[in-house]
Design a protein around this nucleic acid. Structure first.
Lengths: 194, 194
DNA sequence: GGGCTCACTTACCATATGGTAGACAACCGT
DNA sequence: ACGGTTGTCTACCATATGGTAAGTGAGCCC
């Protein structure tokens, strides 16, 4: 869906319909309004995203493997269905009520990630951080590495498939260094342990 | 400028004019078109951003201090002039030609950052990474930590001033772990200094 | 075959938008 | 005092947009 590429406001129903080789009224027959269409797209995307991550996590091991599985899954989506991640980005920008809908749909994933991170920290595998802020940071980085085509070009990297692989490797490297305890240490020892 | 908040397409000249307590035609008198206005805003924002970072860097020390100075500067901007960073995000999303204009205006900063990172890596202070991709990652994380209000709420953090300080601390912590050699494990080659 | 629903279409509309044309008042140097 | 410039305004306009109303034809059920 080109809501993700051109942006919601910039995408007219006529343009959308033309892309589907259909008249605008056909869209309004299936969806009562443009916003309802967006909601439907959000629901569908959230479901797809959840399914993809769920699948990836199902066959993943423990600990760091799970982080890596999620990242790889997201990058696979970036290659196969870039609109999906673009939509997440776009909806986040639109703010309520659409953003609320999306975050609500993804809340279970967030909660799981939160619990996971906390558990890993408690187990001493990961450095201590505020899990919520850590999630925000990881989210931003991953989405950015995957969707920021403009910035990518600005730093002189063309958004090819090969580049995507490089970015994935780079990102995993960074995350490992940032998160894993045995991937670095030395910081003021974690004061507050639950 | 509310281009940053509501988005370029979603911001009408009338709305803009109303905010300025002026008629739309006054805007079109000073700027020949809406896009010209955007360009002007971009130029101004890029200049302000550059000035802010330049100032921060001028009184910063060496090595990691410089990264920290930049991050602190960006967070200060986030508190004082949130539209500035919002605009960067928005323009990045708009794509060419506006994005090209912005990236061109910020290119000197990018080049400097690139050189800096490479030098730090060569000196063995930072882990080896592709500087360009590293920049992309840092950019995404910083902008995200500062502008992703929706995601912030989604993870259960209210975007207050206090939260901003927490986010800054968290981000600096993460960056230190991720980037610094002595903040992490033994990386293959690069002889670790100090 | 008549009625009915379904998927989709054409016709149309109210509104909002970016932009043009030109009036009008304040201010200027002479 | 006056012609010109400057900044803002009112009056319009062409177009695009989301949405409503009203068909139209294919398939189906009896």
């Amino acid at each position: 869906m080109s809501f993700a590429e051109r942006g919601y406001e910039a995408t007219s129903l006529d343009a959308l319909a033309a892309g589907l080789e259909v008249r605008k009224q056909t869209i309004l027959y299936w969806f009562p309004s443009k916003e309802a269409l967006l909601d439907a797209v959000i629901d569908r995307s959230a479901a797809d995203l959840t399914a993809a991550l769920e699948t990836a996590l199902a066959s993943a091991g423990d600990g760091w493997d799970r982080v890596e599985a999620v990242v790889r899954s997201v990058f696979r989506l970036a290659a196969r269905r870039p609109e999906l991640l673009g939509l997440v980005r776009e909806v986040g920008r639109l703010g309520p009520p659409s953003a609320t809908r999306l975050t609500a749909a993804l809340e279970p994933l967030v909660a799981r990630a939160n619990d996971f991170l906390r558990a890993e920290m408690d187990a001493g595998h990961m450095r201590r951080h505020e899990p919520r802020l850590l999630l925000l940071a990881i989210y931003s980085t991953v989405i950015g590495m995957v969707t920021e085509v403009g910035v990518l070009r600005a730093v002189g990297e063309e958004p090819t498939a090969r580049s995507l692989v490089r970015r994935r490797a780079e990102l995993l490297d960074l995350l490992r260094s940032a998160l894993l305890v045995d991937g670095g240490r030395r910081e003021g020892d974690a004061g507050r342990s639950g």
